[in-house]
Design a protein around this nucleic acid. Structure first.
Length: 645
RNA sequence: GCCGAUGUAGCUCAGCCGGUAGAGCAGCGCACUCGUAAUGCGCAGGUCGUCGGUUCGAGUCCGACCAUCGGCUCCA
């Protein structure tokens, strides 16, 4: 057989991969969990055919961890079957960081049940039960699971049979058997570093019309230390939760009187306005014109746009003077009306109309989540009208803009291309054209992208930008959607060079996505310690004693004149106390001023991360802080030495 | 919307088997006049998510509803 390093080695027929690994090196024999033979993942118990190409997989690799996590799911199922013998099994795959398994049980599980299940898993792991693979015809497998009282497994096998599978594989460990493609780790003794984390409801096969099963989630890693690192990361994420920080920093709130309709407090409004000012500046520079379209528009418009047929479930309606109106869930129809107001020449195109548009969508109550999932939000929208020949250049322009914005905040991102969904509007040929145009722009920009078949909007395919925050979590924000339908429906035209009417192409796009969601993400990304340009209070002036109060006011005035947001905390409290409060508010700079500073026109600079930075002339600090804010830097440069927050 | 959990002061949380509510922080007042993450003392603050039921009596038991949290489905 040939190995990954190019070596070709021979072994007696009937040698298992486990034995091969052992012969290659004792270390590989210890570390291999599975292998890939001629491109197919297999167990170490597999006997490779003559001339096979073999690659061993260890827990160092993502593939190996996936095998381990999948095996852990089986172990979980075995433990649950022991504790609840009548349980019906759903599915149990590996997921990012861990695994889950779905069960249909007569009793509801709660968090308190998890320790007992986990203990049983550890006991079974201690027995080092081997995972044994066997293959059966689908008919035999159906019979086996029917007798075992496992209807969900029977359904799965019957579906596999319908798709043409003649045989299926099963895995047994101990007294547990499961339908499974494999591969698995050699025995349950490999499963050590894991923890059951939560229990939740989940529809069978993700279909809300089918029974709800109980899903147990867990995490699993190669080593205990990695598990602990991961659990620490979760704790860190909980500390950064924007709902918690939003309350502590007094940025925003959601109240019982308006579920999903967030309130922005004065400090949150500063962050929001700074972001919007930045957005306006950016769009002005890039040839966009800003518009504002109404929030409530006649229902007829929504019939015409296709929203009535495709989006009604998510919309709010109202009646005015006996006429039906809808609250807009999207901004595009308003932009259509604006475009249609007058005749356009090809010379006007591309026409870029940007709108910070407040939209309302009826989201299911169970999905609401702080600022990240709400029922009203402001899209930093734009509708670009163009000739077909301008498509690629315009899309590239939006990609550049998005890239610029995400980098500024220190986000990395990846891109996905979503294609025609089932409820799509319009001619499939137009869809193909639109999909090709998006793919072409991505390729021209040299971006790697993943394809999500069937995930497009009902009016067109889209490019989604998923940004990655400092904890490695990804969030969908920006999207670029190409639309041939809406111009058709609204009969939009432009007069071409030939004097004839032509149909423009439209692009919908957002960069932040939703201002509300973006603020939520920024809050978590920066753990509430916003870079200077975004911080609600940029500098806090702390007079040591009332004797320095006047000087403190002078300092604050100088800062404000330089365009900085400064506050004086001259309360009758000890300086340590006021510093502590400013720290907790995550104010970027604290200026401690006493008689010495007042006498010399200086300030003692303190940063929220670096502590006391020493005394500097007021004028110098002010100038540097203003520059730091102006340049929208992520570094604290105004303390005299550079340092990333 | 569905499954499960939770809901006591602005925040974090006590409150046993039903006997009529408590702490710390925050707030307010007074004293201290202070140099880089919490000065001391005092005061005030709750129709115990809402509505209904059981009971002599409900924060505690039961039911419905509302909201939140973790998921599912859906999405910016």
């Amino acid at each position: 057989m040939s190995l990954t390093d190019g070596a070709v080695r021979s072994f007696p027929a009937g040698t298992s991969l486990g034995e091969v690994a052992q012969k290659i090196s004792p270390r590989l024999g210890r570390e291999a969990v599975a292998a890939v033979v001629d491109g197919e993942p297999v167990d170490l118990a597999f006997h490779p055919p003559d001339g096979a190409s073999v690659r061993f997989v260890t827990l160092e690799e993502a593939e190996g961890l996936e095998v381990l996590r999948h095996s852990t799911a089986h172990l979980l199922a075995e433990a649950v079957m022991h504790l609840h013998p009548g349980a019906k099994l759903g599915i149990g795959p590996a997921i990012e960081h861990g695994f889950y398994y779905d069960f249909d049980l007569p009793v509801s599980l709660t968090l308190e049940d998890l320790p007992a299940i986990e203990a049983e898993m550890r006991r079974l792991a201690g027995e080092r039960q081997p995972f044994n693979r066997e293959e059966l015809s689908t008919a035999e497998a159906v019979e086996l699971f029917r007798q075992a009282g496992q209807p969900y497994k029977v359904e799965l096998i019957e579906d596999l049979a319908k798709q043409g599978a003649g045989r299926v594989s099963l895995y047994r460990q101990g007294d547990f058997v499961d339908l499974c493609r494999g591969p698995h780790v050699p025995d349950t003794g490999w499963i050590r570093a894991f923890k059951l984390t939560s229990v939740a409801g989940a529809y069978w096969r993700g279909d809300s019309r089918r029974p709800m099963l109980q899903r147990i989630y867990g995490v699993a890693f190669a080593k205990q230390s990695e598990l602990e690192t991961h659990l620490k990361m979760l704790e860190e994420a909980a500390k950064r939760d924007h709902r918690k920080l939003g309350r502590e920093l007094d940025l925003f709130s959601v109240q019982d009187e308006g579920p999903g309709f967030p309130f922005f407090h004065p400090k949150g409004m500063i962050v929001r306005n700074v972001l919007e000012d930045f957005w306006r500046e950016l769009h002005r520079k890039r040839g966009y014109q800003e518009i504002k379209t109404p929030i409530i528009l006649n229902e007829g418009l929504w019939h015409r746009s296709g929203h009535w047929d495709h989006y009604r479930e998510n919309m709010y309606f109202t009646v005015i003077d006996g006429q039906n109106y809808a609250v807009k869930p999207m901004n595009c129809p308003g932009a259509m009306l604006l475009y249609r107001r007058r005749i356009h020449s090809y010379r006007d195109l591309p026409l870029r109309l940007a709108e910070l548009g407040l939209v309302h969508r009826h989201e299911l109550s169970g999905v609401l989540h702080g600022l990240l999932r709400v029922r009203c939000f402001t899209q930093d929208d734009a509708h670009l009208f163009m000739t077909p020949g301008q498509i690629q250049r315009e899309i590239e322009g939006v990609i550049d803009l998005t890239d610029y914005v995400y980098r500024l905040f220190g986000f990395e991102y990846h891109v996905e291309l979503s294609t025609r969904p089932e409820n799509a509007m319009g001619d499939p040929k137009l869809w193909e054209q639109a999909e090709a145009a998006l793919a072409q722009a991505l390729q021209a920009k040299g971006l790697l992208y993943k394809i999500n078949p069937g995930d497009g909007a009902f009016y067109g395919p889209k490019i989604d930008f998923h940004l990655r925050d400092c904890l490695g979590r990804t969030w969908q924000c920006g999207t670029i959607q190409l639309d041939f339908q809406m111009p058709e429906r609204f009969d939009l035209t432009y007069v071409g060079e030939d004097g004839q009417k032509h149909r423009p192409v439209m692009v919908h796009r957002v960069v932040f996505g939703s201002i509300e969601r973006f603020i939520g993400i920024l809050t978590e990304h920066f753990a509430g310690a916003f870079p200077l340009w975004l911080a609600p209070v940029q500098v806090k002036v702390l007079p040591v004693t009332p004797a320095a109060a006047d000087y403190g006011e002078q300092v604050a005035t100088a800062l404000e004149e330089a365009g900085l947001r400064a506050e004086v905390d001259g309360r009758n409290e000890k300086i340590g106390y006021r510093i502590r409060e400013a720290q907790l508010e995550k104010v970027p700079y604290m200026l401690v001023v006493g008689e010495k500073e007042a006498a010399s026109g200086t300030v003692a600079v303190r940063t929220r991360n670096g502590g006391d930075q020493g005394v500097r002339p007021l004028e110098e600090f002010t100038r540097q802080a203003a520059e730091e804010a102006r340049s929208r830097s992520l570094e604290s440069t105004a303390c005299g030495r550079a340092g990333r927050d």
